[in-house]
Design a protein around this nucleic acid. Structure first.
Lengths: 337, 337
DNA sequence: CTGAAAGCGCTTACAG
DNA sequence: CTGAAAGCGCTTACAG
């Protein structure tokens, strides 16, 4: 493969000049020399060697996208928004799919450092509460080696992050149900450290704001799968004084609720109102279509990218940006009977 | 950051020895020397510089995954299966999301060469028929610069590829409908160059195999969106002698058919049978659940990865592997009335 | 088992 | 506007 040495020889200039003509440096160059270099480069089918460039410059123009899964709309929508902007800014995206394994996350972190990635957008993998500690360690590791970091979805110290006010999302959803006359409202939680706690608090505070005493039996922990939504909904619906509305902290569990109601012959929304968290094509097309709390995923992606680019350009002030979710009303809610 | 020079100095050995102790080379080393080096490395918090290593060795241990979108189960399932295996083999994945833009695809190809990526798994972006030419050019470009390539979903010359027998998938689906008594079967095509042609041929051949003369009015072109499935289904269902079954070449268009039937008050499956192509959680949970032709996505990913790894290890024989789809029967098909 | 030396292909102050 | 020189942090035959 042709190198700048080959070009230099043919043009009878130094490699320094070739380098400067080719890499868009702002160093002044004689227009004729430049043109000659460019022509020869084209003739030789020259392609710069990014590896060599990175070693010499200390920058790889690579950012890592560390996410728990890629088979979930939530992350791919954020990822797509980011990847697009990053590509336009001349960065490439190194995909790190942890598959919700804290071990894989840690391996990736090591790899990111080793490969001298410039920055990382970090969505922590958290299955068990103690994973949080490792997440924190991983971030510190990155920081120690000078890797720029932006996180989302969670709160860490000393780094920029973008998150959504999930407390508010849950609060508004429950207030909406109450406004329809519901007072017995089930809550399907997800065992997630962090964000899920906020949703739960939003739920409790909304009830309190209307003077409703919450019923512990109405709060059930699940694991975010459709099956767990199904199972827990069945449990709630079989109570003698069953809830007339159910709020699930994610998308799939809400679909599980719909399925459980269908199997038990309970009409949604006439006899049971349901609200989920996070939108998807499934929520839109299922019968009845689901009312959901929608997070601004594309905005999250774009903002995370902006924050990172900002840091990469030398602006190292930490910023924490919180976005608002929106209640998307469809056909799964109705007045309490 | 610590380098092998720092370690060499502290251990009083050459950098050569340090390098060999650290990078798992099979060069024999005195165990005590090795241990000392390893200890000092740990003490200094040494992390190898992959960039330098790549430049010296000529290998980046990076593979590019070039796909048309990441917001589609079809690709993310393949991608996840691959990424996993590649990570285990010590490669990282450089995500190239073309967003169905042939221009972006071409830019990525250039970037892949420039970054000295070892290999690429290539799913061509094809919106217009003429994109095919550029796909071919892009592959040739990669090959010229010694990048290993494996493609899927399509047929190219001179490279390994894994694909699914979509002809057979369509053929079997139509035969199944015929076995239920259907003779007027609509076909919603997708304007895709390549694979879609096979599905159409499978459709036509299946009809012919039973001596059914196909009706041109029953074949409609769409663009793979739910909306186009909806629109085209409405057109078919409003014909005086409307089809009693519809086959759509993808997932979303089949859902569009369901929606159209619902709006027109046509019962599925009693009055209309529907089959889609490619499975998804939506197909499974929509009412009625959709019978589909399912492609073995995980297998595709794993095999593509295997083929590439094989090439990367020096085995350059081209292989073309064709997998079988399966008809997944659910509740959207019934006897013709 | 160890080391000296050359090399991978660029960039970048510095001097002119 | 151009060039000489050092450097980025490793690897790898080769010789000993």
């Amino acid at each position: 493969m042709a190198t700048i040495y080959d070009i230099a020889k043919l043009c009878k200039v130094s490699t320094d000049t070739v380098s400067r003509a080719l890499n868009g440096s702002d160093h002044p160059i004689n227009p004729q020399t430049r043109e000659k270099i460019l022509n020869i480069a084209k003739e030789l089918n020259y392609r710069p060697n990014t590896i060599a460039r990175s070693l010499a410059s200390g920058k790889t123009r690579t950012i890592a996208l560390l996410i728990p899964t890629i088979t979930n709309d939530f992350y791919t929508q954020i990822a797509e928004a980011m990847e697009d902007g990053l590509t336009n800014a001349g960065y490439i995206t190194y995909l790190c799919n942890t598959r919700r394994s804290i071990v894989k996350e840690t391996e990736y972190i090591n790899d990111i450092i080793t490969r001298r990635v410039d920055g990382v957008i970090f969505s922590p993998t958290r299955v068990k509460p103690e994973d949080n500690l490792q997440n924190q360690k991983n971030i510190e590791d990155l920081l120690k080696y000078g890797v720029q970091v932006v996180a989302f979805g969670s709160r860490f110290s000393d780094i920029s992050q973008v998150s959504v006010d999930t407390y508010k999302g849950a609060y508004e959803a429950i207030r909406y149900l109450i406004s329809l006359g519901h007072r017995k409202i089930g809550f399907l939680d997800g065992l997630l450290a962090g964000t899920s706690k906020n949703r739960r608090k939003g739920y409790l505070d909304a009830l309190k704001s209307e003077g409703i005493v919450h019923d512990e039996r109405f709060i059930l922990d699940g694991d975010l799968t459709l099956e767990s939504g199904y199972k827990n909904a069945r449990r709630l619906l079989k109570l003698p004084d069953a809830p007339t509305a159910i709020f699930a902290v994610n998308n799939l569990m809400a679909v599980g609720v719909l399925k459980a109601a269908r199997d038990l012959g309970i009409d949604v929304p006439k006899r049971l109102s349901v609200i989920g968290f996070d939108d998807s094509i499934l929520s839109e097309l299922i019968e009845p279509s689901l009312t959901v709390v929608k997070q601004p995923l594309v905005d999250m992606g774009i903002i995370a990218k902006e924050l990172l680019l900002d840091q990469l350009n030398g602006n190292h002030a930490f910023k924490t940006i919180k976005l608002e979710p929106a209640l998307l009303k469809r056909n799964s809610c109705y007045y309490a009977y």
